[in-house]
Design a protein around this nucleic acid. Structure first.
Lengths: 309, 309
DNA sequence: TATCCTTACGGAATTCGTAAGCATG
DNA sequence: CATGCTTACGAATTCCGTAAGGATA
């Protein structure tokens, strides 16, 4: 049994059972991968993969039992490397952050700036994607830290912590009639075409919830992944925008005005997630604490294996 | 990084940092071990072991962080093998049971007999030792199952379940005056020299507790690991014996009589323990369920890694 | 001086990639 | 017939044990 075999098998699942792709990802030859798999299968005395003729098509029963063990093996192997780096390289390393547009654009800049001052030798990589994708990336170890408002809580295999709370604001052109009202209602809003985030993004669920609860069917004419795009369309007078307050505070587009909507939609909590059981390097802990200052580092360490550390 | 390196390192700790011994245990050469260790240390970029001149003397700080990860890696590797065996060999395998004399002598025989009928191809190995030692053996993976009345509960890294309850009985020669009483008291007992189990064995703590609670100082003239020995000395009239009820029921020595002592000492619970996170083969589960019929197999499976199985 | 670890070296075994073969959609 | 996996083979590398060297109690 060796790690190359384990890596080949894990990657085979990740690459949807295409050994050619696996070979490319692992920078090796396709017959090599084929061999690695068969060698471990022989050693364990089981078939891990279903084969249709010569095609690898899926996991067998024993394969399904074996996969989580292999995942854990490879995670622990990575933890070992991380501990090594932690003590040797001290401050150098890589920090991969998977996050949504809103966080990357309005929240992370300050945090990253401070962090870079503290750890100038750490390379930071931002990966923008949808919340589900973020969860997957953290879970698979492709990202160290996930940051999003939706989809991270109670995700099997992830441990997440609340970072901060924020609210939605309504964004309208300078001259919009809604600016006359001194406290807008959901009914007021529903009178106009609305522009906001895509399903599953940046607190969108709380927007939907609010309307559903009052039994109002809003006319959401356009959705987008990010507030810049939404503001663009608002200024083109396609409708009234609902965006995260950070976006309006930081970067309200010229010719637009923001209207508070705290009383309309429940507040959102942005969460930071790490993979349960992952070894966290000092700078990762530091970064997370910058994101969630209320968090105690002991709580963070409990993420890691109970007997570890 | 490879498993031989990991094995060398784990074994180095187990063998008290004597690389020569490690080489013998791992059936390899001493320079080989030396190399394995240094290779991993170089790869990780840290020193795992303290060295005094050329002697390996202990773990460094990073070494202490790294050890639990290595332990988990090797445990998962073993789990992988076990899953393989489970699906391939079906019923064949080995079952190592670490237990005390009392269990091995009076409890296990029936269980083992039934078990052998169900799994004739499983080799059973009984290892007798002290409770602390039993815990260690299970923890280190040298034994699959631990069975004892003391020292298994709440042992870090072990998961244990209650098997059955039993009481102590007093054992005296045929003609002993205690046989006249129709309900003996602790005071009655304390009037005679006593013979019972060693500290830390077979419910001995409950015996001590009972006397302490009544503020009586019993005259324990002789202690032994097993009931056979105790009975031997009782029949030589060296004193009054206190043994596990199973011993008296099953194998009361000629010329001795047993007196119930349920009302004197609190009942004892024998527990069965497995290593937390260990993959349990079907026959191991079966064996444990024979020991603890009240246990549900779902509860047992939760021993294993949350995401596993 | 006996124990214990490291270094050096050479043979053996393993590993891996290329090329060819074969099955399948 | 293109895609995808297996088999075959030879070269390169890695691995490992023996032997010698050096340090320490």
């Amino acid at each position: 049994m060796n790690f190359q075999q384990l890596r080949s098998i894990r990657e085979t699942v990740r690459q949807n059972f295409n050994l050619t792709d696996v070979a490319n990802v692992l920078f090796t030859s396709q017959p090599g991968v084929s061999r690695q798999i068969r060698e471990l299968e022989e050693e364990l005395g089981i078939d891990i993969f279903e084969r249709n003729g010569k095609r690898v098509t899926g996991l067998t029963e024993p394969g399904k039992d074996v996969m989580p063990i292999i995942e854990r093996l490879l995670q622990e192997a990575e933890n070992l490397q991380q501990v090594g780096q932690e003590y040797s390289g001290k401050t150098a390393g890589t920090l991969v952050i998977a996050t949504t547009h809103t966080q990357a654009r309005y929240v992370l800049p300050h945090v990253v700036q401070d962090f870079r001052r503290a750890f100038p030798d750490v390379r930071i990589s931002l990966r923008q994607s949808s919340p589900e994708h973020i969860a997957e990336w953290v879970l698979s170890g492709k990202a160290d830290i996930g940051l999003a408002t939706e989809g991270l809580k109670q995700f099997e295999g992830l441990t997440s912590f609340p970072c901060y709370e924020w609210n939605h604001v309504v964004v309208v052109p300078n001259t919009h009639p809604l600016l006359e009202k001194n406290k807008i209602t959901l009914e007021d809003l529903a009178a106009y075409p609305l522009i906001t985030y895509d399903q599953g993004f940046t607190g969108r669920s709380h927007i939907d919830d609010a309307f559903v609860q009052k039994n109002i069917a809003p006319d959401i004419v356009l959705t987008a992944m990010d507030s810049d795009v939404i503001q663009q369309y608002v200024s083109m007078e396609l409708g009234v925008g609902i965006v995260a307050s950070m976006a309006a505070e930081d970067n309200l587009k010229q010719g637009l005005k923001a209207i508070t909507a705290e009383h309309l939609f429940s507040p959102n909590t942005t969460r930071v997630a790490v993979r349960s059981g992952a070894f966290l390097r000092q700078y990762m802990i530091d970064f997370i604490l910058r994101l969630a200052p209320a968090l105690k580092s002991e709580k963070l360490l409990s993420t890691q294996h109970p007997t570890g550390r």
